[in-house]
Structure formats: C-alpha cells, structure tokens
Amino acid sequence: MDSTGEIRVQPALRLQGVEKSFGAQRAVSALDLAVPKGETCGLIGPSGAGKTTSIRLIMSILFPDSGQVEVLGRASALEAKDRVGYLPEERGVYRKMKVGAFLKYLAGLKGTPESAALSRARELLSQLGLDDILQKKCEDLSKGMLQRVQFVGSILHKPELLILDEPFSGLDPVSVRMLKSVVADERRRGTTILFSTHVMAQAEELCDRVVMIHKGRKVLDESMSTLRRRYDPTRVLFEPLDADADLSVLRDVPGVLSLQRSEGDVQLRLAAGTDPASVIREVAARVTPARIEIARIRLEDVFVDFVRGEGGESEVALRQHLQGLAGEKA
C-alpha cells in the first residue's frame, strides 16, 4: 500500500528504481511503478518517451541496468511468461504460415492445449470480424486484419496480465472499436492490463490509472479519478443558441477568469474554488445556450502542462501528436 492508500491488493506488476541506458543515451530513468491486480493502467507519453523500452524491461526482453522488476509475484517475467499476454509495438507473423497454425503455435508456447486454443481463437476472431480465416495464410491478410490476429494471439491463453504496446495504432475506427470491446471483456474477466499509447484520448477512455513518461522519466502516476478531482472542473464549454449573440456579457460572470472562442463555442476558464454549477446557471441566464457543459480533464492538457517550457517542438505539433493526428514521431 502506498502513501495515498490507493493500492489495496498485491500488485500484478511492480517496478522499483528501474534504469536502462543504451550507450550514452538513458532510455528509462529511476522508474517506479505498481499496477494493482485487475486494474487497467495506461502508459502514456509521446513516441520516444521510453514506453516501449519500459515494456520490454517488464517482459524480460531487455534487462535493466539497475532496479527490480516483479511480474505477477515473480522476480522476472521469464518465470511468469505463460500468465502474461503481450502485443508488441513491432509485431510480426510468419508470412507463409496459416493463421490457425500460427495461433496454435503461439498458444502452444504458452502451454495452452491445441483444442482449447482453436475454439477460443474462433470465438475471438469472430468477435473481431474475422470469421473463417484460420485456413488462410498470414501473407494473404491485410495489415489491419493481421493486427487483429496478433491481438488474438496475445490473449488466447487467457493471461492474468496483458501488456499492449500501442494496440490501436494504424487501425481503422471500426477495428479500433472492435478491439476496445475485446479489451473491455478481458478487463471484466479480471485481467490486469497495461497498455501504452501516445494518443491521450484512448487512455482517458480505457484506463483506471495513467502513468505518464517523458524522456525516460515518470512525470505523473495517478488514478483517473484523482486526476479528475484534482484538475476538474476548471473549464465550462458553452455554445450559444444564436451564433451572433453578444458574448461579452459573460466576462463579468463571477468566477470566470477568461473567455476563449473557438469554432462555434466558447471556453470559460474558472478561478480555483469556483462552483461550476453557479457559473452555468448565471451563463444560461445571460445568453441562451444551445449546449453548456463542464469540460472534462484532458490528459493532453496535463501532459502539455508538464512539458511546457522545455523547448523542443511547438505546442501545436505536440498536441497533434498526442491526439494521434500526426501519426508516429520518428
């Protein structure tokens, strides 16, 4: 149990003071992490932040220069590989192998009997819109189909801990939705999930907790509920019914610090301690709203707050990246 009292069960995953350098470049620095059993934890940060290296250290694909990694109560993932599911960011298949044979092979390596693996594979593939592909060769599938097959390969053996490295990157929205529903099923089954993403909205949607990494260092480790409590509500979104309405009358609403217009709506920043309900009532009384709501915390804003002032790329470029608009950074 840590000082905040949030961890109430033995963690499925624990990292203590983990460091990893490649030559002179430090990829992961003093990383502490504890993911309780059954929790979905997002490892977030832009590409190159150290997420994949951290995950490889957890999986014992790389070994830390110092520090300790504990996976499902074992001193190393090597001792618990059969209970861990992993979808790497750099995922591949045996192109000449049939999908069924490939999945059977992966499940076999995890100790799952062939028949059980095949029946679960059929069920999962069907859930992901891939009926009747077991006899097809991997090379005959599209990239998106392969990604779903690889995802199935990572959960065939019903892992207790599921690690997904950028699982949605490169997928079309329909596939993303299907994949999210299977992730939700795994979560309901009680699987502990650690997934990395550079798209903050995905983390907001799926995670109980987020760990933010920047330049190899952990800069934030909070549950989403704490984050929401800490940062919310600081903004109110307002869209007037009459697009030409005079909005200057909203400036002197008590508790409003500033007004910021964007396409069609207005964002009102509130002073700390302001009751958003009273602001909403007052705003609605002055200008008839088409829509008025409290803005939820956006991880993107939290992250931008953290890295602001460090120089490097512009805020616009960083935000585009964190929204998944600019794709992968080199």
């Binding site: 999986m59 014992s60 694909i61 090597l78 590989k81 861990v84 599911g85 992993y86 790497p88 750099e90 995922r91 591949g92 298949v93 045996y94 192109r95 992966l106 390596l109 995890k110 690889q150 390969g153 990572s154």
Partner: peptide, 17 residues
C-alpha cells in the same frame, strides 16, 4: 533473419527466452 525482419521475433520473445 526472416523472424527478425518480419518482426515476429518480439512476439516469440514474449513466450520464450
């Protein structure tokens, strides 16, 4: 080489040392 270039190797390393 094929396993490495097709990136299937990291999938394998999740299951075997």
């Amino acid at each position: 080489i094929e396993e490495k270039s097709s990136r299937v190797v990291e999938v394998l390393l999740a299951a075997v040392s």
